[in-house]
Amino acid sequence: MKTIRTTAIAAALILGVASGAQAATDAKEPETRDWTFNGVFGYYDEAQLRRGFQVFKDICNACHGLDYIAYRNLQAIGYTEDEVKAIAAEFEVRSGPDEDGEELNEDGDFLTRPALPFDKFNNPYPNENAAKAANGGSLPPDLSLINKARIGGANYTAALLLGYPEEMPEDAHIPDDKHYNDYFPGNAIGMPQMLFDEVVEYEDETIPMTAEQYAVDVTAFLQWAAEPELEERKSLGVVVMVFLFVLTWLFYKVKQQVWRDVH
């Protein structure tokens, strides 16, 4: 038994490494995009994040959760307190137990109430098994950290969302429940193409309602979800760097001064 386990771990290691190499050769390299949050002076475009949130709410949230974000956090991307309350109220969350200790109503369903700003984002499924059952065995991952949890980050997410070619290569073998994607390791992904032109209505008429635009906007929103501290981090970093350059220059001058007579 113990030997079996040890062997299994060793085999998992070797096979894992091999399949990793295999997957790496199947998937295309995502193109590098020019994000506002790139670089030392990176920032978030709040209008873009709100558009991205709209895409997330209308499309992604049908299958994906956002466990680490509460509705109140949306104030950070420019929604007012009242708007946040209205957004939260669109969703139902479990409210039980009630005064009598009951978690279920007469029909045996969980008691619910409209969500409040302090609630975490509505998860579309009650648990992982329900999520898998509804998606042909694939588990739609939580998206709170998706841009940090994938090699390529935002570039990868955007590429993946758009990576469904009209015709898949002839030599690709994709199981019935799966879909072909250029950028997904192994190419067989559970998620079908979700973004098409004009599936989400933008208020701002100057922004094109294309799949490309949706993908970029929702990816920017997910970047914010993964790194809400990014703007504060980078702007503080610039100040810290300027301070350190001056301080270090002073240290250097003092050092030279102190050492001038040493032979």
Binding site: T248, F251, Y252, V254, K255, V258, W259
Partner: peptide, 11 residues
């Protein structure tokens, strides 16, 4: 001598 040199290193 070395306290100030180490401080520069820290910077």
């Amino acid at each position: 001598y070395y306290t100030v040199k180490d401080l520069f290193g820290v910077g």
